[in-house]
Simulated scan of single mutants.
Amino acid sequence: MNSGDMLDWFLGVSMEDHSDADCLMVAISSHGDEYQYVDPERSNVTKREDLILTTDKAIFTRDLVDIFRDEHCHSLKGKPKIFLLQACRGTKLDDGVEILEEDMDVVDALDEPEYTVTPPPCFKDFCIVYATPPGHFAFRRPSEGSWFVKAFWDVVEKVDLSRVDFLRLVTQVIHQVAFSFQSSADDPRIDAKKQSGCIYSMLTKDVYFTPKQEAYELML
């Protein structure tokens, strides 16, 4: 899909009447990358933005999410907007760490260090679930698909969606990706690597996927 078609699709969905909907969920599976730039107000701070790659160019993830803000999509005002993003957010790889139960001494820095920040494209009633942390690669297996999508499907099949809050559900997904997957490749640069998902949430209520008829009966 090219950038124009993707933006047109998102805009089209945002202009639909969602009065009868309880929430919106959008899943994107694509190649991705990051864009970094120096903060014009703080020279020691580098900002990064996530990109979704299309067939002709990249689109800022923030721009896609922004389309569904309350002021742009009135029929979804006050309703949960959930985005599942399976895409790379850079090229870093996670070697994983051995979990140690001991305190480690640290030194407080006296000088302000250089650092990178990722402003999350998150607004009230939004939840964005990334397959991988900022700046990192997202793995997939040719035979099974992406780690994140497979883990999400495995968890969804096992739980009662009407009884498990969405944030608890995706926490289980992230746990499964982090502890059940490890890359295996002939190239030592990408062998034995790990991955962990990332949640940005500004939801103002718990989210349960209860069938409408069942939900109606519970209110009687």
Rank of each mutant, 00 (worst) to 15 (best):
L203G: 07
P188F: 03
P142Y: 02
D108F: 09
A58Y: 12
T61G: 03
I190E: 00
L53S: 04
T210D: 11
L169G: 12
S162I: 11
G197T: 07
E112P: 05
K47P: 03
F209Y: 07
T91M: 04
D66A: 08
I174K: 03
C198I: 03
L93T: 01
D94E: 09
V207N: 06
H18C: 05
R140S: 06
H18T: 06
E114A: 11
P119D: 04
Q182H: 04
S143P: 04
P133S: 06
V26Q: 00
V38Y: 07
G135Q: 03
F10M: 07
L84I: 15
P142C: 02
A185C: 14
D111M: 06
K158R: 15
S30N: 11
M202P: 01
E101P: 01
F60K: 15
S3V: 01
I28P: 02
E112I: 13
D95H: 09
E217Q: 15
R48Y: 01
V106I: 07
Y208K: 10
R168K: 15
G197R: 03
I174R: 02
D56Y: 09
V107I: 15
Y200D: 05
D125Q: 09
D103Y: 10
L110M: 13
V117N: 02
S75Q: 03
Q176K: 15
A215Q: 12
Q86R: 02
Q86Y: 05
T116Q: 13
A185F: 08
Q182N: 04
D154G: 04
L64F: 10
K57Y: 05
D56V: 12
D94P: 02
E71V: 09
M202N: 12
D39E: 01
F137K: 04
T61P: 00
T61E: 05
F83E: 00
V164H: 06
V65P: 03
M219L: 13
P134I: 04
K57R: 13
E71P: 03
L84W: 00
E98K: 08
F181K: 11
G32M: 05
V107W: 06
S180M: 08
Q86L: 11
L64T: 08
